[in-house]
Amino acid sequence: MMLALWSIVRFGVLVEIRYPVVFLSNVVSTALFLTLLLLGGRAIGVGGIEGALFITFIILAALQAPQRALEDSSAEPEEVYLYPIPPIATLIFQAIGLAVRTVFSFTIVYLVMLFPLHLPTSTLIDLWIYAPVAFLAGLGPGLLLGGFSLLFKKTGALVNLMAIIVLAGAFLPSSLMSSVGSYLPFSVVQGLMRGTTDIGTVAVVCGVSLSLGTLGYAFLERLVIRMGFSGIK
């Protein structure tokens, strides 16, 4: 099974580097988008959000990947159920693939933005250190959204809404973060980076959210199959 799951990650990365022009266009547009966000953040007086923003995008990769895999327009909704691998494992590894690609492209984006925006190099190191934790933080809710996607079929709008909420979380000031965001999987990682949350709390919050996400997905999957819904779009 590990070979299969490794292949999902490997070919996912291969797709990105296969088309360098598309890849570079994505890097440039992401860099522009992030520049706007950073300048916007500075304008409203929220400084030092580079790290939070970058980590947010890793969270988003984990959050969106299961829904994207299940709503693959080229195939039937049950595609991930047609292999001898537990579907949830396939979804998790597709999310890992997307997260690896995100870290890779964001490293380049950061290097592009480093000098024009006078960004600290330490944030890049933080990106690599905290990326796995951010991925785990996003995966639980991502699996739950995947479960909703099985049930309701077209949940792109819901996932986009979640993405906007998560992105907005990057702009929360530290004071609010310590109260509101202490127990939310998306914000504890930012708290960890800012030094307002300890690693133990992050581990517990991520563990609980991942467990809830997995259980939620399993429950929705059973419900969908019991209803005979899996083939209806």
């Binding site: 099974m1 070979l3 299969a4 490794w6 292949s7 999902i8 070919f11 291969l14 797709v15 296969r18 088309y19 693959d72 080229s74 195939a75 039937e76 049950e78 595609e79 047609l82 292999y83 001898p84 691998i85 396939t90 083939g231």
Partner: peptide
């Protein structure tokens, strides 16, 4: 299996890569 005449294909990968990816999911040795 082929359901409704369809299976997922990654259009940006070659035929060889698509089959290699799917074959690994069926647990075939390299």
């Amino acid at each position: 299996v082929l359901l409704d005449g369809r299976r997922a294909l990654e259009p940006r990968l070659s035929g060889l890569e698509n089959l290699t990816l799917k074959g690994s999911m069926y647990g075939l040795p390299k």
